[in-house]
């Protein structure tokens, strides 16, 4: 387990300030914004959000753990998302996961110890014609052939 870096509460405060105080319906939206700023949701940030919106802490955690978009642990610099939609699945995506497991040493949901890469699997990114697809941060890698993905990602 990697030690979590200290949370910049100023940064959290700046995000909170964009929302109306006490407006409970903003919870999902606020957490999304926090996640895109900090790249994950530290416990302190969720607590601050719950207090700010006047939402019980358990509801805030229940939302944060319900949606897949949220991560409660720090993630790597590059998020490698392997699409496991049906089309990708039958066109070889499981091999891509295998390649990453062997090449980067991490499986889905895990982060390399140097915090460089986090491997995730997602259910369909809507680019089925390019199956199998991998998205490294915002870069789409189409029609991934067996044995090639690690090199493509490392070369950036």
């Amino acid at each position: 387990m990697n030690a979590a870096p200290a949370v910049d509460m100023k940064q959290v405060g700046a995000v909170l300030a964009r929302f109306e105080k006490g407006e409970r319906s903003h919870l999902v939206h606020l957490l999304q914004d926090l996640q895109s700023e900090i790249h994950y949701l530290p416990g302190e940030a969720i607590r601050a959000a719950a207090e700010y919106l006047d939402v019980p802490l358990n509801s805030a955690f229940s939302v944060a753990t319900f949606y897949k978009a949220f991560s409660l642990v720090p993630r790597g610099e590059t998020i490698v998302k392997v699409c496991l939609g049906t089309s990708c699945h039958i066109r070889g995506a499981p091999v891509v996961v295998e390649d990453l497991r062997i090449g980067l040493g991490v499986g889905p949901g895990e982060t390399t110890p140097d915090m460089k890469y986090t491997v995730e699997v997602v259910n369909c990114v809507g680019a089925c014609a390019l199956a199998p697809v991998v998205i490294a941060n915002t870069r789409y890698i189409a029609d991934v052939k067996p044995g090639t993905i690690v090199k493509i990602i490392e070369e950036g």
Partner: peptide, 12 residues
Amino acid sequence: DEGDPGAFMDCC
């Protein structure tokens, strides 16, 4: 919220 894997009409 087009969640079905293998469908991207609404996205388009």
